Amino acid sequence: MFGIEQKLARTAKRAGLLSGGLLLCLIGAAFLTVAVWFALLPEFGPGVTALIIGGGYLGLGCICLGLGAGGGAAVQPQVPLAAAEAAPAPGATPESPPIVQAFVYGLQTGSKAGQARH
Results as ranks from 00 to 15, higher is better:
M1T: 05
M1Y: 05
M1S: 14
M1N: 11
E5D: 08
E5R: 07
Q6L: 15
Q6M: 13
L8A: 10
A9E: 08
R10H: 08
R10Y: 06
T11Y: 07
T11D: 11
T11C: 04
T11K: 12
A12Y: 02
A12V: 06
K13I: 05
R14T: 12
R14V: 08
A15Y: 12
A15H: 13
G16C: 02
L18I: 14
L18A: 15
L18C: 09
G21C: 02
L22K: 06
L24M: 07
C25T: 11
C25V: 10
C25H: 12
L26H: 03
L26S: 04
A29T: 04
A29G: 03
A29E: 09
A29I: 05
A29R: 01
T33C: 12
V34T: 10
A35T: 10
W37Y: 14
A39I: 10
A39P: 01
A39T: 07
L40K: 01
L40C: 06
L41T: 03
P42I: 06
E43W: 09
F44M: 03
G45Q: 01
G45E: 04
P46L: 10
P46N: 06
P46R: 09
P46W: 14
T49P: 08
A50D: 00
I53K: 03
I53Q: 01
I53M: 08
G54H: 05
G55F: 08
G55T: 09
Y57H: 11
Y57W: 14
L58Q: 01
G59R: 03
L60S: 12
G61Q: 02
G61I: 04
C62W: 10
C62D: 03
I63S: 11
I63L: 15
I63Y: 15
I63W: 13
C64N: 08
G66Q: 04
L67S: 09
G68H: 01
A69C: 02
G71Y: 13
G71W: 09
G71S: 05
G71R: 09
G72D: 03
G72Q: 08
A74D: 01
V75I: 09
P77T: 00
P77L: 07
P77Y: 05
V79Y: 02
P80R: 01
L81G: 12
L81I: 13
L81H: 11
A82D: 12
A83R: 03
A84C: 03
E85H: 00
A86F: 06
A86V: 09
A87K: 00
P88S: 03
A89N: 00
G91Q: 03
G91V: 07
G91I: 06
T93V: 10
P94Q: 00
S96Q: 00
S96C: 00
I99H: 15
I99P: 08
I99G: 13
V104A: 06
V104K: 04
V104R: 08
Y105K: 11
G106F: 07
G106N: 15
Q108N: 02
Q108M: 11
G110E: 14
G110L: 14
A113R: 14
G114T: 07
Q115L: 14
Q115V: 08
Q115W: 04
A116G: 09
R117S: 06
R117N: 06
R117A: 13
H118M: 13
